[in-house]
Design a protein around this nucleic acid. Sequence first.
DNA 1: TCAATAATATGACCAACGGTCAGTTACTGC
DNA 2: GCAGTAACTGACCGTTGGTCATATTATTGA
Lengths: 221, 221
Amino acid sequence: MGITERKEREKESRKESIIDAAQKVFFEKGLNLSTMDEIAETAELAKGTLYLYYHSKEDLYLDVMMRGLKILRTMFKTVIDHKLPVVQTLVMLADTYTAFYETNKNYFRMMHFFNTPQFHKQVSEEMMQSCDRFNQSLWTMITEIIERGMTEKKLRADLNPLEIAIIMWSNASTLLMRIDNQHEMFMKKMNIDLNNTLRMSNMLLLESVMTEHGKQELRTV
Amino acid sequence: MGITERKEREKESRKESIIDAAQKVFFEKGLNLSTMDEIAETAELAKGTLYLYYHSKEDLYLDVMMRGLKILRTMFKTVIDHKLPVVQTLVMLADTYTAFYETNKNYFRMMHFFNTPQFHKQVSEEMMQSCDRFNQSLWTMITEIIERGMTEKKLRADLNPLEIAIIMWSNASTLLMRIDNQHEMFMKKMNIDLNNTLRMSNMLLLESVMTEHGKQELRTV
DNA sequence: TCAATAATATGACCAACGGTCAGTTACTGC
DNA sequence: GCAGTAACTGACCGTTGGTCATATTATTGA
């Protein structure tokens, strides 16, 4: 006995080493310019072996991306577990997302592909569900904070908590994306610091969903 | 005379017919699943001929996308030329973007690729500049309206007009994107109508950049 | 009018890729 | 040892973006 468990562990660690190799290659070249041959070589495995663990290049890509999502969720969880006042927590969550981008740009870039039209056509059903489930958990986490803010009368109760979460998350995501590939251009050609734009939009949105009570608290943060 | 001009015209019309064919294929299958062979067949040309007019598949893709951008710019121009009060114009511009999405989903989807990391590596310098120039003109158009709103004291003058344009545009873009590929999911699993979310976020952002004077006008629209 | 020249178009061809699978190797239990 | 199973291999396949020697068509000039 214990053999099946050991096999299980070995299989899992083999999978991890494949993800390690894939990550190295994907980080450097992105999805399209990376090849399964190079990933196989990096992992010191035959290409065929990769397909014993993943249905497609895209599946493997998403499993690497999941590592990034896990990091982000952990960072969010840490903030939330501080159990600070809601307003402060929301501000910190926004800052945390920015910090995640700064220290994990490669993961952040990978997330972009999830929104690509036709991308999911090349992804297996299981992997898709796995990602969906994970995303779900992120939404729930943020939505719960917002709900707490409403019961505490810091956030406007006439709005839908999940909708607020969607708006704030989408806004931050799209601006970080822009920072990632247009920051220099906006700086040079238009003298705009997109980091500042992001901070500002976060503030504008936060204020606009808060009660007077909440806004007061926001100013003290 | 005018032989060189006629040649020019012929070349241009050949190019148009290539774009026609490419559009048909790209609309149906997206960038990755479309093949140059199929585009050539649709255009009733040899594949080699396509490469006399475009450096790469991606270049051709972007030229199709430009058609969409031109449509959008025309729609914006029409709204602006009505010379309605600033606040009303801004609301209409937001609605126009949504309308553009509704009637030109395929073009809208293509625009997504412009933000893809590493995408520009496969695009020629000229095509990239051509796109940049076009984008620039869109930014300018919107920024000018916002500036007018500031001089008319409808919009807060302590904010940067271009930054406001970036925020509003980015917010609408990302939510339309989400509507495009997650509307059904949010509807079924979470009972959220993303169209409503988009309208709301537009309103929240608009209000948050307006003076009291402007907000009054907003309520009458 | 027609050969010379230039401009345009062709499609067989190539290298590179994602993915497959018949065959090999390594491990397990008896 | 040895049969049976699980894991691994890499030559191979079909498809693709892109190339280029060749062919076709259009233009020129005498």
